[in-house]
Computed example of a mutant assay.
Amino acid sequence: MRKFYLIGFFFLLLFDTLGQCSFKFTAEHAKPLEMSIDWIIRVFTNPWVYTAVLGYIGAFFTWMLLLKKAPIGPAFAASHLEVVTVMFASIWLFNEEVQWLRLVGAACIIIGIIFLALAEHKLQPNDQA
């Protein structure tokens, strides 16, 4: 079961990060932002917008599959690792700055997820029969 969770959350993070970064690529390629038909055409003729949609579809189905078996508390918390993965992907893909406060926030998210997972593990009945 643990392998199922690890693989499932890996794909959830992959799809979520792909979706977010694809939207950023779409926004970059559709500049300048303006409420016009030209801007709408620039958005919908950009392949990144469709990659973003595919990322979100993949994330949705992965999330639904995970929710069938994973405890909701830790699963919901772990799904927020997307904030961390998108931050690191943005540093790599978009040359965004690494600020120490962002790193502290990412560490807090990771520590919180670990604590929730440990608490959930302690609540599980032991199967020693």
Rank of each mutant, 00 (worst) to 15 (best):
R2E: 14
K3H: 12
F4H: 13
F4M: 09
I7R: 05
G8I: 02
F9D: 00
F11Y: 13
L12Y: 03
L14H: 04
F15N: 01
T17H: 01
Q20T: 09
C21G: 02
C21F: 00
C21V: 09
S22A: 13
F25Y: 13
A27V: 01
A30Y: 03
P32V: 04
I41H: 08
V43P: 09
T45W: 04
N46W: 08
N46C: 14
P47V: 06
V49S: 02
T51Y: 04
L54R: 02
I57M: 09
G58R: 03
A59Q: 00
F60Y: 10
G73R: 08
A78F: 03
S79W: 03
H80F: 15
H80R: 15
H80G: 14
E82S: 08
V83M: 06
V83Q: 02
V83C: 00
V84Y: 01
V84A: 05
T85N: 08
F88Y: 12
F88T: 07
F88G: 04
A89C: 12
S90I: 05
F94N: 14
N95G: 15
V98Q: 12
A107E: 11
C108Q: 13
I110D: 07
I110L: 11
I111C: 10
G112I: 06
I114K: 07
L116A: 08
A117R: 06
L118M: 15
L118H: 14
H121D: 14
Q124M: 15
Q128W: 06
A129Q: 04
